[in-house]
């Protein structure tokens, strides 16, 4: 059988460093969208606790049972990441494989919220988005999921948008770095 080599959507674009901010890629691994059937949210959360040790997240919340995490991604929807979903969950929810459909970036450094302030219409400073919180919004014209992790801000976007996303963020990083140099 032919062994295919997995390619990243970044090619030589990443990592990027500018001033105090660094942009890098990370591999989100298997991702599954969990969408509870009407009235089954609590039952899904119980089934997740039994199968994986974490519950279905409230809006804006991330639940975790390392290496698994579950990110709220919209009304009636969350992404289970870091490992495959138990097929038994399909009794309570629609499960849709998202693996390789999304790309994951990490923006590190104290100036990360300042960089994204040029592209994202939501306050991402730690006081507004503390660790363990997540949200859906826009980055330029792209819909994204943004989560504060210990290492920095994690950004999920559609894989087809990878090049544009890196271009937009890297430009903003250079502009913020340039401002800092000018004082």
């Amino acid at each position: 059988m032919v062994e295919l080599t997995a390619q990243t959507p970044w090619a030589a674009l990443l990592p990027v460093t500018a001033g105090a901010t660094g942009l890098s890629a990370w591999d989100p691994g298997p991702m599954t969208a969990l969408m509870p059937y009407r009235g089954r949210r609590a039952a899904l959360s119980e089934a997740m606790q039994a199968a994986h040790g974490l519950g279905f997240p409230d809006p804006g919340e991330v639940t975790a049972a390392p290496p698994l995490r579950c990110l709220w991604t919209g009304r009636g929807q969350a992404f289970l990441m870091g490992g495959p979903a138990d097929p038994g969950l399909s009794a309570q929810a629609a499960l849709v494989d998202q693996s390789d459909g999304w790309v994951a970036l990490r923006l590190e450094g104290e100036t990360a919220p300042e960089v994204l302030a040029r592209l994202v219409p939501v306050d991402l400073r730690p006081a507004a988005l503390p660790e363990g919180r997540t949200l859906r919004t826009l980055c330029g014209h792209m819909t994204v999921s943004i989560t504060r992790a210990p290492e920095g801000l994690e950004i999920l976007a559609f894989r087809s948008m990878a090049g544009t996303l890196v271009h937009e963020i890297a430009d903003a990083m250079r502009l913020v770095a340039g401002r800092a140099v000018l004082g």
Partner: peptide, 17 residues
């Protein structure tokens, strides 16, 4: 109406509600 009205808005780039 000139006054109170109720509209539908779609949170397209947010939660999808």
């Amino acid at each position: 109406p000139a006054g109170r009205t109720r509209d539908l808005w779609y949170h397209e780039a947010g939660c999808g509600a």
